[in-house]
Structure formats: structure tokens, C-alpha cells
């Protein structure tokens, strides 16, 4: 499913959060959106989902497969969310309902959007749990009984159980530790590729982005400052914000041979 954002501006109480953002995700493409905290990147995802704050005034256009999101009524957006669009949030421990078992949370989008028999729902839930690498016996546990990585897997399962065609991932790895981050990113990429869905991946970390997206946009203070192939931006960022982000990523990672260690 393709996503096309044109001239999207968003302001809250007269404060500009997004300023004429143009962004495209082609069918089956994985696109990255990178920016430091407070740059407004989460607000783009919320605008696409139609869950921007009520006090926000939006202008421009957001087309999801030709359907205009801005100005659509809440009913049709709610039908879109969770069925054809999936969302993965930063913090799985708050994104999951603490008093519901994993199974019923993963099942919820199926119940909401489709009329399926209980067996069919069960089959699909178990299938997606297996594909995100969660043991079947974890389906009956509560979120707090899972580790951070397992929680995020459950959240991914919830987002993907309806086989959405567009997936928005808002910093899905930031709250996890380094090894788990890698595993989740690789899992997400392989699942998205298998299903052929489009992915908009939001992050502040180039070292994560480089593994996910071939193409990326850099957002700073609500404006897009640079876009291009991820590898070429990594090699030669043209905007100062891009340079800062790339330099930070290089400094905080090891080079490929693992031997680059300088004394201060």
C-alpha cells in the first residue's frame, strides 16, 4: 500500500510542529524517517493514523492508497487502523494493556475488523505468534511476565495479525537493549518483506535505520532537511542535521572490523 504525504503542516495552539512535509512510501518499500527528539516525527505517524491531537490544525494531504486521510471521518479511519494499517510503538510495556493476556491483545484486531470463527482466529493468532518468535505457551501470559523483547514481539504480532499493507513503526527498538534491538529490527524487516507490506520506520538512530530502510528522510524541527538513499546519506550527508546524526551513529558504533578504538 502506498503512502503519499504532500505539504503536510501541523500546528498546535499556534506552535508549528510540522512544516510542509512531503514524504512518499511506495508499495512494498521500506522507508526510514529519522530525526532527534522533538523534531515532530511521531506526529507524522499520528497524522497518518488520524490520531493527531484534537487541538492540532492540519493542512496538506495524506493519501493512503489514494484515500485522503485528512478530513476523513473517524469511522472510516478506525476501520483502516489495525486492518490495513498497523502501528508499532516505542514502549511495549505501555503499548500493551497490562490487564489483558497476550492472546486476547493479539486477537483484538481480528475481532474488531473481521468476522471469523473462534478456531480461525485462534489459528491466525498462533501463526503470527510463532512467526514473531513467541512460544505458544506465552500466549496465556500477561505483558509484565514477558521480557522487553518479548513484549515488543507481542506488539509486533498485534500490529501484523491482520496482515496490514502499511506498517508504521515509531521507534520500536529504542526501549530495548542492544542485542534485542538487532533481533527485533531483523524480525520486523523479514516479516515486512514476507508480507510485501510497506513500512515507514521512525527512529533517531542511524545504526538502526541502516538495517531497515533503503531510502530515508531526515526531519529537523518539523521540516524535512534531507532525503535520499540511506547508504549515500551515510557516506556523505549534505545537511548539517544529517551530518550530526551520521557522526553520532559512527561514534557510538564499532566499525566493521571491530578494531577501531581510539584513546581520547
Amino acid at each position: 500500500m502506498s503512502l503519499s504525504i504532500d505539504g503536510l503542516s501541523l500546528s498546535i495552539n499556534g506552535r508549528t510542529i510540522l512544516d510542509r512535509v512531503n514524504l512518499r512510501v511506495a508499495d512494498g518499500q521500506r522507508v526510514g524517517l529519522i530525526g532527534s527528539s522533538g523534531s515532530g516525527k511521531s506526529m507524522i505517524a499520528r497524522s497518518v493514523l488520524g490520531t493527531a491531537p484534537l487541538t492540532a490544525s492540519l493542512s496538506g494531504s495524506i493519501l493512503v492508497d489514494g484515500l485522503q486521510i485528512l478530513g476523513s471521518d473517524d469511522r472510516s479511519l478506525a476501520d483502516l487502523r489495525g486492518s490495513r494499517m498497523g502501528m508499532i510503538f516505542q514502549n511495549p510495556s505501555t503499548a500493551l494493556n497490562p490487564v489483558k493476556k497476550v492472546y486476547s491483545q493479539v486477537e483484538l484486531p481480528l475481532r474488531r475488523h473481521y468476522r471469523l470463527s473462534a478456531q480461525e482466529r485462534r489459528r491466525r493468532v498462533m501463526e503470527i505468534l510463532q512467526r514473531v518468535g513467541l512460544d505458544a505457551d506465552l500466549a496465556g501470559s500477561y505483558p509484565h511476565e514477558l521480557s522487553g523483547g518479548q513484549q515488543q514481539r507481542a506488539a509486533i504480532a498485534t500490529a501484523l495479525v491482520t496482515k496490514p499493507r502499511l506498517i508504521l513503526a515509531d521507534e520500536p527498538t529504542t526501549a530495548l537493549d542492544a542485542i534485542t534491538q538487532r533481533q527485533i529490527v531483523d524480525l520486523l524487516v523479514s516479516l515486512v518483506d514476507q508480507s510485501g507490506a510497506s513500512l515507514l520506520f521512525i527512529t533517531h538512530d542511524f545504526s538502526v535505520l541502516a538495517r531497515v530502510a533503503d531510502y530515508c528522510y531526515i526531519l529537523d524541527a518539523g521540516r524535512l532537511v534531507e532525503s535520499g538513499q540511506t547508504q549515500s546519506i551515510l557516506r556523505d550527508p549534505s545537511s548539517p542535521q544529517g551530518r550530526t546524526l551520521v557522526r553520532a551513529a559512527r561514534e557510538l558504533t564499532l566499525s566493521a572490523d571491530g578494531g577501531k578504538h581510539e584513546a581520547d
Partner: peptide, 15 residues
């Protein structure tokens, strides 16, 4: 708990 560019700043501070 902070984003990557701030991490570098903190790292330099500690260094």
C-alpha cells in the same frame, strides 16, 4: 534515555 546526538554530547562530557 536520550537520543543519539545527545548521547554523543554526554559521552564527550564524561570523557
Amino acid at each position: 534515555a536520550v537520543d543519539v546526538s545527545a548521547r554523543v554530547g554526554i559521552l564527550h562530557t564524561l570523557q
